[in-house]
Simulated scan of single mutants.
Amino acid sequence: MDWYLAVLKNYAGFSGRARRKEFWMFTLISFVISALLTGIGTALDTNLLSGIYSLAILIPSLAVLVRRLHDTGRSGWWVLIALIPIIGAITLIVFAATEGDQAPNAHGVNPKLATA
Rank of each mutant, 00 (worst) to 15 (best):
I29L: 13
L55D: 08
A35L: 08
S54P: 01
R67E: 04
F31W: 15
T46H: 14
F31P: 07
T38L: 06
L49T: 02
W78R: 09
G73F: 02
L62K: 00
V79Y: 13
S15D: 12
V32Y: 08
R19F: 06
I52G: 04
S34L: 13
F31C: 14
W24F: 15
I40D: 09
A35D: 11
S54C: 08
D71R: 10
R74D: 00
A18K: 10
L28I: 13
V79G: 04
P60Y: 00
F14Y: 15
M25S: 13
G39W: 10
I40S: 09
R20E: 04
H70F: 04
G41P: 05
L49M: 10
A35G: 14
I33L: 15
R67T: 11
N47H: 12
S30T: 12
N47P: 06
D45G: 06
S61R: 06
G13Y: 04
L65W: 07
L80W: 05
V79S: 04
G41I: 01
T42A: 15
V79W: 13
G13P: 01
A18V: 06
R68A: 00
W78A: 05
S61F: 11
R74F: 03
T27V: 09
R19A: 06
G39C: 09
G41Y: 05
L65C: 06
G51V: 03
L37Q: 00
L36P: 09
M25K: 14
G76K: 09
F23M: 08
N47Y: 12
R17Q: 06
H70A: 08
V79Q: 03
R68Y: 03
V66S: 05
A18M: 05
S75T: 10
R67H: 14
L58Y: 11
P60E: 01
T38I: 00
I52K: 11
T46P: 02
A63H: 11
E22R: 12
A56F: 09
I59D: 01
W77D: 02
S75D: 01
G51Y: 00
D71C: 12
L80G: 06
S30Q: 08
L80F: 07
A35Y: 09
N47S: 14
R17V: 02
R20M: 05
I33G: 10
L49E: 03
T46W: 01
K21S: 12
I40M: 12
P60H: 03
T42I: 02
W77M: 06
L49Q: 08
S61E: 02
T27S: 14
T72G: 08
G39Y: 04
Y53T: 04
S30H: 03
T46I: 08
P60C: 14
G73P: 05
G13F: 07
S75C: 05
D45P: 03
I33F: 10
I52V: 15
F26W: 07
W77P: 02
T42R: 13
W24I: 12
